[in-house]
Design a protein around this nucleic acid. Sequence first.
RNA 1: GGUUCCGUAGCUCAGUUGGAUAGAGCAACAGCCUUCUAAGCUGUGGGUCGAGCGUUCGAGUCGCUCCGGAAUCACCA
Length: 616
Amino acid sequence: MIGSGLKVTNYCAIFAARIKEMEKLLRSGIREAVRSLYGVNANDDLLQIQKTRREFEGDFTLVAFPLARLSHRSPEQTAGEIGEYLVREIDAIDGYNVIKGFLNLVIAPAEWSRRLDAMHADDAYGFAGAGPDAETVIIEYSSPNTNKPLHLGHIRNNLLGWSLARICSAAGKKVIRTNIVNDRGIHICKSMLAWQLYGNGRTPATEGKKGDHFVGDYYVLFEQKLKEQIKPLVDAGTSPEEARENAPLMQEARQLLKKWEEGDRETLELWQMMNSWVYEGFDVTYRALGVEFDRIYYESDTYKVGKEIVLRSLEEGHLIRKDDGSVWIDLTADKLDMKLLLRSDGTAVYMTQDLGTAVLRYNDYHFDRHIYVVGNEQNYHFQVLALTLLRMGFEWAKGLHHFSYGMVELPEGKMKSREGTVVDADDLIAGMTATATTMSQELGKLGGYSTGERENICRQIGLGALKYFILKVDPKKNMTFNPKESIDFNGNTGPFIQYTYARIRSVMKKAEEMGVRSVSDRNEKIIPNPKEISVISLLNDFHLLVPEAARELSPALIANYCYDLAREFNQFYHDYSILGEENESLRSFRLRLSELTGRVLEKGLFLLGIEAPERM
RNA sequence: GGUUCCGUAGCUCAGUUGGAUAGAGCAACAGCCUUCUAAGCUGUGGGUCGAGCGUUCGAGUCGCUCCGGAAUCACCA
């Protein structure tokens, strides 16, 4: 047997260093081959190496077409000659075949087994630590208004932001998760006014209601009452826009906003009280979704900074003041428009506070990159924001990046609050958990567990289904959510991946009971079968996948990878016995393969913000 | 009208810097539990990759034109 665990690790680390560079090894080998065979140096972008497609024999494929130019031979002949050379010169390459100019290379199966050991020995496999000179990335997400509870659109936003933060961290960046709360403005004044008029002192506590829903109800009530006031005016011949502006309720709301901006104590107290109700409600939703922030900014603070910056920039001559006193930036030279930065009455607009927030954050963190997770309806806004900051002389604004994602739509189209089709976040989360519970019962799972354990597992599964459903699709595309057909738990879903993980955990527990060890024995030579090799090969992709996902800012890449890995493992699991294998070394090897798959699935799910249940 | 994004199987979606015969899941049908969890595995059918032209040895992927859809172009946020 083996001496100490430490020795095993060292032994494996050597191979980790060597085999991690498997693709590099191939590259240098091919470059060498080209030099030796044709007497020329192959430019790196001519060496196109990819994984061999399933239907052909081999592990890696070199596309020989580009090299045919150097060899002055047909792609087929070039591929054949290079293949010949590689098999002769590189131990790890066992064989090759050529099909239509594609050189398929077969890696020695034993090499895969060594690669597995190397990955298995590395607890941090796939995740990079943040070094002292790591890039600092701010990720802003969520960004709610304080007049309404969160809905499905916010869920997509929060899940994307949270996952991006984890992916960037795993890729070795220093990440600051932040939120900007739109806590001031006419919208919250509407809720405040409605509560003053019709609330009769009710509170979330007296009504037994979540604070955000409670306040949201008054916002809806305001709009209802306003509509009642508008109707007679319109009937009397006023235009709808004018009627809306002139309705007494609207006037009162504006007055309340004015009082707020003047710092009226009573108004501020009401504002604070109602916002605190909303925050309590948001906290519950955030906790249910499993998202957190390192730092929260409030528009009520940042809009002042924004105003100062605009005024200073005006003095510096970057901006224009019109006759009515309003302040603008002229972006027509960049094919954009004139953009308002301060109203004629001196008050701030949306852009003003975003300018302030950006500057505050730069002063706070000196970020290299600032990622805004905000829907694609604001593409124009963020174009203007970055350009305006640059014009104002803030060079760091080059690091601003709008992570623009698509809308979540219903089969009938957009969610509309007027038609009551908005999918509430809390309802949806509760619904998913309920579905998971029903399904679990129908399948006869989770017998013998306590109620608390059962509830927790069903919660994990329900949320896993929801999160995966949302994160697996390309963020920039609009996506459809059909509330009638509940989200699936079979096939390409979160629970499928969770289930694969739970099965592996179950095997691990049983292995422990049986006393089967997963450590490798360096004296044994394992020749993995093709199914095992496909799993190892996928596991090997993971260390390249994480930086790739960080570069592309793509949780979908991680999600789809997890699915592929789980599917591949399930086939292996189905076809071969792990603990039932009689050959001791092979049994241990399969256990390592399973354990590492479990760890990688867990990490992948972690990057998506999905919990991995030990059993289900 | 300007700008940006999207269009792949009945439905929901993948498809790496352009590479081989475009892939999954759902739904439908047919199988597989005495064996490590059947939320699993296997098989069958299903496609003019919106249309056309171009670049290329090679285009779902790049360019242009058109068709269809979405967003945006507020002294709203």
